[in-house]
């Protein structure tokens, strides 16, 4: 099994998703700068919310954006499932451990109103932010993300690092599978013994060496094509009407959330 996984076109590994063309949608048409800035502002605002009405608006915004991004809900829910399970457990442990007005008695445990509310707040905040980030930034090709960050004033070296990190996570992933396959085709079965530990040691060591090597060769190839620190994006950014209207809408939503929060 696993052989040739890194060369298949089907792209079953989740990591590869970052480069698959995203479904065409209204959000994709937006200026990347707008998307990055609005996401940042929204996420920042949401982290300060603690009242139910404003949090529900935040969550609804996230859901609306997800709907607009035209990504299949099923995939999104599956992805958020792990996080939500974790948050539920966290919420429960908060409910048990934070003292306050007792709502329920479950065996020896007392669930407090304060604890439950805190758990719920965290759950809502996390989901609102997660949905928004997936919808607005998840549909963005990495070069655009890098370019947007750069245009918003993030230093060029940082955006380069980010871009190349995104690009080479995949390469390292592929390299890892290549090595794993090489091991498995020679009947390697992981177990708890020295042979396994040593083999994994080699695997990780070789992975690091190879990645470093490849990064040097890629840089060399880039230099051969005239790269000296300036990354050109194949896209011109033009500010459209929809960018203005989206920004205005985003500002309104954030304001409404803040007002509801203060009231």
């Amino acid at each position: 099994m696993g052989l040739g996984r890194h060369t298949t076109q089907s792209g079953q590994a989740g990591l590869m998703d970052i480069f698959t063309p995203q479904p065409a949608s209204y959000l994709r048409e937006l200026d990347p700068r707008v998307r990055v800035a609005c996401t940042f502002a929204f996420a920042l605002a949401v982290t300060f919310l603690s009242h139910l009405p404003s949090l529900i608006i935040a969550l609804a915004t996230g859901a609306l954006l997800t709907h607009l991004s035209r990504k299949p809900w099923k995939r999104i829910l599956k992805r958020t499932a792990v996080l939500n399970l974790f948050l539920l457990l966290l919420g429960l442990s908060l409910a048990v451990s934070i003292p306050g007005e007792i709502l329920y008695l479950v065996g020896p445990f007392m669930l407090s109103r304060e604890g439950l509310t805190l758990g719920l707040v965290i759950l809502l905040r996390a989901n609102a932010i997660l949905l928004t980030v997936t919808a607005l930034l998840g549909s963005m090709e990495p070069p655009n993300l890098g370019f947007a960050l750069y245009r918003l004033g993030v230093p060029a070296s940082f955006t380069h690092i980010l871009l190349f990190m995104i690009r080479y996570i995949e390469v390292i992933h592929v390299e890892y599978h290549r090595l794993r396959d090489a091991m498995q085709t020679r009947a390697f079965e992981p177990a708890t013994n020295l042979h396994t530990f040593r083999s994994f040691g080699y695997l990780i060591g070789l992975l690091l060496v190879r990645s470093l090597d490849r990064s040097n060769r890629v840089l060399a190839a880039m230099k051969c094509r005239g790269f000296y620190g300036r990354y050109h994006v194949m896209q011109t950014l033009t500010w459209e009407r929809r960018d203005t209207s989206f920004t205005v809408a985003a500002i309104l939503v954030v304001l409404v959330m803040i007002v509801l929060e203060i009231m």
Partner: peptide
Amino acid sequence: GLVFQDADDQLFCP
């Protein structure tokens, strides 16, 4: 123009 022996070294854009 140098074309590398390993094409994976050369291609790096999405």
